[in-house]
C-alpha cells in the first residue's frame, strides 16, 4: 500500500530535464519589481515562448547576482555604487543603465492632525536626524504652539532603498537617522500605524498614500515663500517635487542584450513603461527621457551617468542622459 502510493507519486511527478526555452532573468529591488512584473506580464502575452522571471533580492543583492553574470537585468531603486561597478568590471560584466519611472515619498500624518499643514526640509531634518532622538520628543519641541504630545514616528526599515534615499535627502547622509521610530519594510504597516495614532508622522511611497487617501492626511513640502509642493504625479513629472522623488532604474547586461529576445524585452519595456509605471503606482518619466533611454540601448552606451555617486534630489535627469558618450567604459 505504502509502496504503491510512493510509486504513484513518483511517476506522476514530472522528473524530466528542462526543454530548451528562452529565459530572461530579472532580480533586484522590490520597488522596481512592480514595474518589471507588469512589463513581464504584458510581454508574456506577446511573446509566449519567452519565460521571464522576476525575483526580489533588494537592489544590492540584485547587483551581486548581476555582476556575477547570474541574471540578465537588475531592478535598481538607486544608481549602481562604486564597489558594485568594480565587481562588475572585474567579472567583465558591462551594463546599460536605463531609468524607467519615478517613485515619490510622501509625508503623512493622521487625519485628525489639525496643526501640521506643511513642512519644510529643515523641519524634516530636525525630526529625523540622529541627534534629535534626545531633543525632539514632543510635537511642541518643533513648535511651541503644537500639542505637548509625544511625536510618534513611522518610517522605512533600514534595509530598504526608501530609507537610504530619504536619509540622504533629508538628513544629508545616507543611512543616518534617529532610531527610536517604528520601522517597517512594508509600507502598509506604516500606513496603518499613522492611521491609528493621532500624534504620528511617517513617510511612505506615493502609491501607498494614494491607496489610503481616506485614512491619511498628506503634508505638502514648503520649499520657499511661494513654493508649496503637493506630492502628486504632476509635480513629480514637472520636477517641482524634486527633493523627495527619485528615479528607478533597470540595468541590462550588454552580452544578454545581444540575444534577440532580451533586446525585444527591453524595447517593449521602454515602450510600455510610461503606462505601466502609472498603473502600478509610480510616475512615468518624460517622453524625452524615455527616448534618451532608447537611444542608449540603440547605441549600446555602457556605464552609469552617476559614476558611483548616489542620486541626489534636484538634478534634471534629461540633462544627465543627454550625453551618449560611454561612462567608465573599460
Amino acid at each position: 500500500m505504502l509502496a504503491n502510493l510512493i510509486f504513484t507519486l513518483a511517476i506522476s511527478f514530472p522528473i524530466f530535464l528542462n526543454c530548451q526555452s528562452k529565459f530572461i532573468k530579472l532580480d533586484g529591488s522590490s520597488t522596481v519589481f512592480l514595474v518589471s512584473e507588469a512589463v513581464a506580464e504584458e510581454f508574456g502575452k506577446v511573446q509566449k515562448d519567452v519565460k521571464v522571471t522576476v525575483g526580489i533580492s533588494g537592489t544590492g543583492g540584485g547587483f551581486q547576482k548581476f555582476c556575477a553574470g547570474e541574471i540578465d537585468i537588475n531592478n535598481a531603486s538607486r544608481p549602481i555604487k562604486k564597489v558594485e561597478m568594480e565587481a562588475c568590471n572585474s567579472k567583465g560584466v558591462q551594463y546599460i543603465e536605463l531609468p524607467v519611472a519615478y517613485d515619490a515619498i510622501s509625508i503623512i500624518v493622521n487625519k485628525k492632525n489639525t496643526w501640521l499643514e506643511e513642512i519644510t526640509l529643515e523641519n524634516l531634518k530636525k525630526i529625523w536626524q540622529p541627534q534629535s532622538q534626545q531633543t525632539v520628543k514632543l510635537w511642541s519641541d518643533l513648535n511651541p504652539a503644537w500639542p505637548k504630545e509625544e511625536l510618534k514616528l513611522f518610517g522605512a526599515g533600514v534595509d530598504s532603498g526608501t530609507f537610504d534615499f530619504f536619509t540622504e535627502v533629508v538628513v544629508g547622509k545616507s543611512g543616518s537617522s534617529r532610531s527610536d521610530y517604528n520601522s517597517s519594510e512594508d509600507d502598509n504597516v506604516i500606513v496603518q500605524g499613522v492611521a491609528r495614532e493621532i500624534y504620528s508622522l511617517g513617510y511612505v511611497g506615493l502609491a501607498y498614500y494614494e491607496q489610503n487617501k481616506d485614512k491619511l492626511k498628506v503634508v505638502p513640502l514648503r520649499l520657499s515663500e511661494d513654493e508649496l509642493i503637493m506630492p502628486n504625479r504632476q509635480n513629480v513629472l514637472n520636477g517641482t517635487y524634486k527633493f523627495l522623488s527619485r528615479p528607478l532604474f533597470i540595468y541590462v547586461n550588454v552580452s544578454a542584450l545581444k540575444k534577440p529576445h532580451v533586446k525585444d524585452f527591453i524595447d517593449f519595456y521602454l515602450k510600455n513603461a510610461p503606462k505601466l509605471a502609472d498603473e502600478v503606482g509610480y510616475i512615468r518619466l518624460s517622453d524625452e527621457l524615455y527616448s534618451l533611454a532608447r537611444k542608449r540601448v540603440e547605441n549600446v552606451v555602457v556605464g552609469s551617468v552617476f559614476e558611483g555617486e548616489g542620486y541626489k534630489g534636484g538634478k534634471k535627469l534629461e540633462d544627465l542622459y543627454a550625453s551618449l558618450t560611454p561612462q567608465n567604459n573599460p
Binding site: P14, I15, F16, L17, N18, C19, D27, F33, S36, E37, A40, E41, G44, K51, V52, T53, V54, G55, I56, S57, K65, E70
Partner: peptide, 15 residues
Amino acid sequence: GALTYVAFIPDGLFS
C-alpha cells in the same frame, strides 16, 4: 533566489 514573478508552470528539476 527563488523568484517572485513566475508566470509558467515549473517543468523540471532545474526550472
